[in-house]
Write a protein that binds this DNA or RNA. Structure first.
Lengths: 210, 210
DNA sequence: GGTGATAAGTTATCAGTGATAGATTATCGT
DNA sequence: ACGATAATCTATCACTGATAACTTATCACC
């Protein structure tokens, strides 16, 4: 079975941005099927209907392309957090819901989550340097809504910890632990996933709230 | 500054295993300084004082070498857990202590912890197929001491969750979250570390035990 | 309608990657 | 001394991300 090798027609003069979108769409589709590092620039280019070097007219590096997708993914998370904040009340049920929004996002956008929170600066520092730390910044910004929720619960006198900042960091660590492990070690013999997430959130709630 | 290019003398006939150890040592050092994917087989070979293809006499693939380091890291953790189990009693205080053993292991041996739990081992998803699932088996073994402790607490009627395995995985995720973030994001504006760890363990205890 | 500027895209190529094939050398038991 | 073989080398492969230099379509303008 040969590859189709269908080339997309050349774009009119000012439509470079449109081609850029097509590349991002093609890349996102490939990244959802395989790991980022397993997808080559040639595969992305073919899916987008252009030659491989043509990618570099729109993205300085492959990491740049990945970073762009990550920033967009976190914009989605920000939107979800904002949506969840609309009917927010400082209650245990709302707490659970907020926790799940975070975990669900990580599992639905594993590549974005990986780049933002799981790649080590000191180890693969080149990535954050090349991308200006934009994905991580976008991730932290999306996280601010969550921070505000915890402060709200603390103000309502519902939290155990007397230091809301410490509690927020602790809860973040708790959420990140499950999310990152489910992403990095999917083959581990976990108990049924929904029950696991539910149990985890319940444990965090009992540990954090009175 | 040229690379030294110092070749290690050829090993005597039966000493292949010794060279294997040298390769693993060299690789672990390089992996502690850079991400696994950023370290090439040629760099490992040079650090071990041999040619690059010579690696393949001892490891079928690069993933195989990484898997070996992973197994060893798990073994170290297993030993720590077993040692901590000596004076174990199903009490909240002992629970706290066990949690700290895990976190301390990660912070004292960040390289080992990275290899075992944080490193994304393969470009594609077929890592376990190629490594025969050995790292995961070692991980499950290290996990058993943990499972036993939680089962003990569960039998004593001290746990909230009715499923001890699920609770164990949840607690592990909680521990891993803080440990991995402290390793990967040391520059994050954390609250004072001892207070953070103490608060985290306290939250996990409240969430897990009655 | 030709003309030059330039956006959009090409082919050819580079150094570096993991991995393999086949020859070579040192060490062993006999 | 000799054959066997463990240990290791050089040479090479297909593929990767990335760059250089060239071509071509589209545009504004006289």
């Amino acid at each position: 079975m040969k590859s189709p090798q269908v080339r997309s027609p050349r774009k009119p003069k000012g439509q470079g941005a449109e081609r850029r979108e097509e590349i991002l769409d093609a890349a996102l589709k490939l990244f959802s099927a395989r790991d980022v590092h397993a997808v080559s620039t040639r595969q992305i280019a073919e899916a987008a209907g252009i030659s491989q070097p043509a990618l570099y007219a729109y993205f300085a590096t492959k990491d740049d392309l990945i970073a762009e997708l990550c920033v967009r993914a976190f914009a989605t998370l920000s939107a979800r957090m904002a949506a969840g904040k609309a009917d927010w009340t400082p209650t245990p049920a709302a707490f659970d819901k907020a926790m799940r929004v975070y975990i669900d996002f990580g599992l639905e956008q594993p590549d974005a989550y990986r780049v933002a929170f799981m790649i080590e600066k000191s180890h693969d520092g080149a990535f954050h340097a090349r991308t200006g730390g934009r994905p991580m910044a976008a991730g932290i910004e999306a996280f601010q809504a969550f921070v505000a929720m915890i402060a709200d619960l603390h103000a309502a006198g519902l939290t155990h910890d007397d230091d809301p900042l410490r509690l927020t960091q602790t809860l973040w660590a708790g959420l990140h632990g499950l999310t990152s492990l489910l992403i990095a070690r999917p083959e581990f013999p976990w108990v049924e996933r929904e029950a696991l997430i539910g149990g985890h959130v319940a444990m965090l709630r009992r540990g954090a709230l009175k």
